[in-house]
């Protein structure tokens, strides 16, 4: 009784009890429009004379299509590997105690904090023919720098924290009673992991994968150094925008960007519904 009246009173008074709605809302929407929405709308209402025919010409150009293929496939591969490695890192961080754990945890954030250009030059130095790792792989006939493999590796570096930081909190909140019950019923540890833990971790893993994938599609700084930027082979879509701009082909750059933006918005939609689903299934 008491609780319901209180809640009802709260709902009524909450509407406008606190001051500042008008001014904070007004400022936020104005600032959002000026810094984000208006500039973004320039892609749609552009002055570059981009007609539908021209858009279609650019969007279906072989070099443009190849750049999308490179971007999508390397981002997907990197996000998939990150999902596996990220699960391992999150598991170890949440479930085990070991010396150096705090440093371990802090290092996961490095790709978030490190400027992408720095990641780009250091990965290239590591994997070029005479780099620490590149020189080890060379005799095996494996080339990383200036191949799609190098792009994938750079995107793995950029994407790994997304997976770890989405899986980690869910794993921390996981109720161990279920695992205990499974063990009591005679399930082995592996079986418990597959049947009890994995279903709980699947939504955050998928979200982490989607976040890493979305970031990977648009990533530029860490990739341009290691990719070699060969048209048709290792040229990513963001780089193609850049080179069209350098040739003053504004219409072409806009067309490529529009398609890339469309993919990003689709990913945003997918991620939002994934997070919604993950929140619902964790309750």
């Amino acid at each position: 009784m008491n609780v319901t009246t209180k809640a009802a009173a709260g709902a009524v008074s909450r509407r406008r009890l606190l001051p500042g709605f008008g001014i904070t809302m007004g400022f936020s929407v104005l600032y959002l429009s000026l810094v984000v929405l208006l500039p973004l709308s320039a892609l749609l209402f552009n002055s570059t004379g981009l007609s539908w025919a021209k858009f279609w010409d650019v969007a279906t150009d072989a070099r443009v299509l190849a750049s999308y293929r490179v971007s999508l496939s390397t981002a997907a591969a990197a996000a998939l590997i990150d999902a596996v490695l990220g699960l391992l890192l999150a598991w170890v961080l949440v479930r085990y105690e070991f010396p150096g754990k705090r440093l371990f945890d802090a290092l996961i954030d490095l790709p978030f904090a490190l400027p992408t250009a720095v990641a780009g030059v250091s990965l290239t130095a590591l994997y070029s023919q005479n780099g620490w790792i590149g020189s080890l792989l060379e005799p095996l006939g494996l080339r990383v720098a200036f191949t799609p493999l190098g792009i994938t590796l750079a995107l793995m570096f950029i994407g790994i924290p997304f997976v770890v930081r989405t899986v980690q909190p869910v794993l921390e909140d996981l109720d161990r009673d279920m695992e205990e019950a499974a063990a009591t019923l005679g399930a082995g540890r592996w079986r418990t992991f597959v049947r009890i833990v994995m279903p709980e971790l699947f939504p955050p893993l998928l979200t982490g994968f989607a976040l890493a994938f979305a970031r990977g599609i648009g990533e530029y700084g860490s990739v341009v150094f290691i990719s070699g930027n060969m048209p048709m082979r290792t040229e990513i879509a963001p780089l193609l925008i850049m080179s069209k701009l350098e040739q003053f082909d504004y219409a072409g750059a806009t067309a490529v960007a529009l398609l890339l933006l469309l993919i990003s918005f689709l990913m945003l939609l997918v991620i939002n519904s994934l997070q919604h689903w993950a929140r619902k299934s964790s309750r």
Binding site: I241, L260, S264
Partner: peptide, 12 residues
């Protein structure tokens, strides 16, 4: 969600 390159392009 937007590629950094697009973040520059729009201001051009």
């Amino acid at each position: 969600a937007v590629s950094p390159v697009i973040g520059g392009l729009i201001f051009i």
